[in-house]
Design a protein around this nucleic acid. Structure first.
Lengths: 164, 164
DNA sequence: CCGATTTACTTGATATTTGAAGCAAATGGC
DNA sequence: GCCATTTGCTTCAAATATCAAGTAAATCGG
């Protein structure tokens, strides 16, 4: 027979690590989902908007020169079809403007309108306060640690390129 | 006029904190969404399942005596209607069994079937390996810090009660 | 015990998201 | 330059999720 199971034989250890990672992921998922729900329902109630819409506007706000549809979908981590419908809705409301990219006949450049900028700024202020409130139970140390650990985690997915 | 703006006057400080919390939230959201996508597409490909289904089965696996519909929806953070349809589908596939709660005529108790337990165990093994792989870039210290910070964060939402 | 209220769940209409198929412009090899 | 392939976006059907309304059982106050 093989060695008697001690508390640190390789098999057991691996299992333990797996479980630990799983618990970590579960917690990450739960926290994010809970916050997401609070945020989304607040945006709905106060601004007749949603988190995906806010996210999209935020990306555009950061890119005054506009973004292509594809770039948008990559940044907000959603499908192209979804971006099409989000942008279409925002355009109907006059918050966003689409126009053909000058350098590529297939591409579309999306930009915030003046109204869109105003609207986003208002929302963003309320949004920041809400988020700050949700996170204010964390100590400065915890925040730093969280930020750093998530930064490391993100590397795994974004083999290179920008920060966010 | 008021005092000249130093780098630490209360207003500026508040703004800075708000922004910092926002960046933290953005990162949390991004990481979670990225992992979610990997996990979900893996579950789809390898097991013709999805993350919500996995989550639901996981809850039942932990509660051998079964759970009520309401308890399930609270745990997986989704609406009652959604749980009804998830459970209905899983029951059609024979992974789950519904029966009236003995002590309350309105309530339904959901339980894993033997097949459901087998199926979940298989999925869970693969799932754990995947997750462990995604998190293996984190040092032991980072994992602990992450787990702890998320624990603190969770308190904010679950004023009392169990851990997860 | 009775009616009013609350609780647990289901139903069905609506909204959102995905994923695959389609179209048009750009690119690359020849 | 021309055809094949790739890229950027849109469309539409199917899958999911939400929300509000409905049903039925339990609880509560008399």
């Amino acid at each position: 027979m093989t060695a008697p199971a001690t508390t640190t034989d390789p098999e057991t250890r691996l299992d333990r690590d797996d479980h630990e990672a799983l618990r970590l992921w579960l917690r990450l998922f739960t926290c994010t989902t809970m916050i997401e729900r609070v945020v989304d329902s607040t945006l709905r109630r106060d601004f007749a908007s949603t988190l995906p819409r806010f996210d999209l506007l935020a990306q555009l706000f950061r890119s005054p020169d506009g973004l292509r549809m594809g770039e948008l979908s990559a940044r907000i981590l959603t499908t192209g079809g979804n971006v099409t419908s989000l942008v279409a809705a925002l355009e109907r409301e006059g918050l966003v403007k689409r126009r053909p990219a000058p350098d590529d006949g297939r591409a579309t450049l999306v930009r915030l309108t003046a109204a869109g900028r105003r609207h986003f700024t208002t929302m963003a202020r309320a949004h920041e306060r809400l988020i700050a409130g949700l996170f204010d139970g964390l100590s400065a140390t915890e925040r730093r640690a969280l930020h750093a650990a998530l930064g490391t985690l993100k590397q795994r997915f974004r083999p290179s390129r920008d920060t966010r």
